[in-house]
Design a binder for these strands. Structure first.
Lengths: 292, 292
DNA sequence: CTTTTGTACTTTACCGATACAAGACAGATT
DNA sequence: AATCTGTCTTGTATCGGTAAAGTACAAAAG
């Protein structure tokens, strides 16, 4: 096999979902746009829909024969892009066990473990290296730098610098800037989550990310914006391992966000500074508490 | 061919240079350490030295038969690692001509132009992407973001933030920290360069890089330290195209560096701030002047 | 008993090939 | 006149293979 057709399978599953929701696009280009794939893939999807007797197309006329059933969908595992699989396996290794600084990472071994070609692992490691957790010895192995206190400190230091600057830039934005509207929406989501915190506080981490990315967007600086990828990665993975007091932590964070939002609206530099600093300080504390 | 043996050729050339200087190491491991390569490569070098009748080895006894001549060396082009070749070709393209933001970058085309496999180009582009000049569209091409004013501004903004912090950290270093010693040496080099500025002011860019990297080392933060790679890349390539007033610019920069060094030694926070700001401001101006 | 050499083995760097996915274009539909 | 479909071409994602470079270990030399 040359390439897993995850793009196709993903698009197919999402088309089934659209069908169930009754919102199937009419034309190939339109469907391509909503799915974010090319027409070639759309046609492959339509072709399979016809094979399975769900939708038949003739020319530009399409008729839905039946609603999709559960077993029409591809298994989730199959729709996961290879790079995600590699990333997950690798992060599991790093976070779970022998992730001491100085450990060697072997491309070939990783590739064999996951069942993929070395070049895929290689490319992943190169991409991953910008997170500052691994380093390459030319012509030789990669060296792990450890998910430790030093990493957390360095990360937090830069984060605080960047976010403070972004927050001040945000507060200074003219009132007709579209970012304000997006901030309003996010605030509403925060309040909504607060009401239902008992049930699904797990959704917070995703909201948290969108909130901070919105703030960073005000910096209009690609280096600042891109740096948030490092933080998002850390939160995404590391917090899967640290469920202690999750609810309390999240609830507190929501309140801090709300205060932060109010400060931004006030336009008062000192208030923004304080709210930002307060929130980032507790974020730092949480992070440090969960390092090795 | 599977792999250019540039490592070997490089090591071989450097061994010849060591021979001419009369400083050949005795044992294989020792030579490996000074060259920074493995024993396998050292043995390949020794074996070629024997073939060419320069040095013969029997057991651990080695005798030098003759001094290396000019045509014993491999041509420089052959000793250049593939990744360098790719980088140079790519940067030339970006800087020379049609480097408008939005231009597509085609892996296959680049690979054909240089005469290498696509995977090598791919890996280069992934590594290069952290410089913020290109961006990947999944399953599709890379998009150039343009070596323009916006890029220079964003770069300068982060640089100033980072270097200011590093400089303050440097000034606060205890006097027995080894970085002070290295600063002394660099100062001497600056003065030396100032005396001979007429002849070889070209050497300044390399000195400049070492100076700023030294300052950043005081931050003890991998993200800050690594960020200097972006700046180094920009200076390395962009300045090859902008030779206007090079001598005056460099001379001024040297004086700014000397003032900067004096400020660091003084430990006076305000003085450090001023010297750092002054220098970075003129660096920013130079950079902006040379963007498209 | 430490360091070096000879040798065998493992891993990385790079190539070439191919299925999957994107993109281009002309003729057909509305 | 714009958008859509059919068809074709190009390019990316991934694999498997091999020469170059690194690494491990036992026997030899000091």
């Amino acid at each position: 096999m040359a390439r897993q057709n995850t793009t196709f399978k993903n698009a197919y599953n999402r088309t089934l979902a659209l069908l169930s929701a009754g919102g199937l696009e009419t034309s190939e280009p339109a469907l391509g746009r909503t799915l974010g794939v090319s027409r070639t893939t759309v046609r492959a999807v339509l072709s399979r829909l016809a094979e399975r007797g769900i939708v038949v197309s003739e020319g530009r006329r399409r008729s839905i024969l039946r609603a999709p059933a559960d077993d029409d969908y591809f298994a989730e595992a199959e729709t996961d892009p290879l790079s995600n699989v590699i990333e997950r396996t690798f992060m599991k290794r790093i976070l779970e066990a022998d992730a001491k600084a100085g450990t060697h990472v072997n491309e070939l071994e990783l590739a064999r473990e996951i069942g993929v070609a070395t070049s895929s692992v290689r490319e992943f490691l190169i991409r991953f290296s910008r997170f500052g957790l691994i380093e390459k010895r030319p012509n030789s192995h990669w060296v792990l730098k450890g998910f430790n206190r030093a990493f957390a400190d360095e990360l937090a230091e830069v984060r605080e610098m960047f976010e403070m600057r972004s927050a001040l830039a945000f507060a200074a934005l003219p009132k007709d800037n579209p970012l304000w509207g997006r901030l309003d929406l996010l605030e509403a989501e925060h309040r909504g989550l607060l009401d239902t915190i008992g049930q699904h506080f797990a959704g917070f981490s995703e909201l948290d990310e969108r909130f901070h990315r919105l703030i960073h967007a005000a910096s209009r600086n690609r280096f600042i914006i891109d740096f948030y990828d490092v933080i998002a990665m850390v939160f995404h993975y590391h917090y899967q391992w640290n469920k202690q007091n999750e609810r309390e932590r999240n609830e507190q964070a929501i309140h801090e966000h709300l205060a932060y939002i109010a400060a931004l609206r006030s336009g008062d530099v000192r208030r923004v500074r304080d709210a930002c600093a307060t929130h980032l300080e507790s974020a730092r504390a949480t992070l440090l508490a969960s390092t090795v």
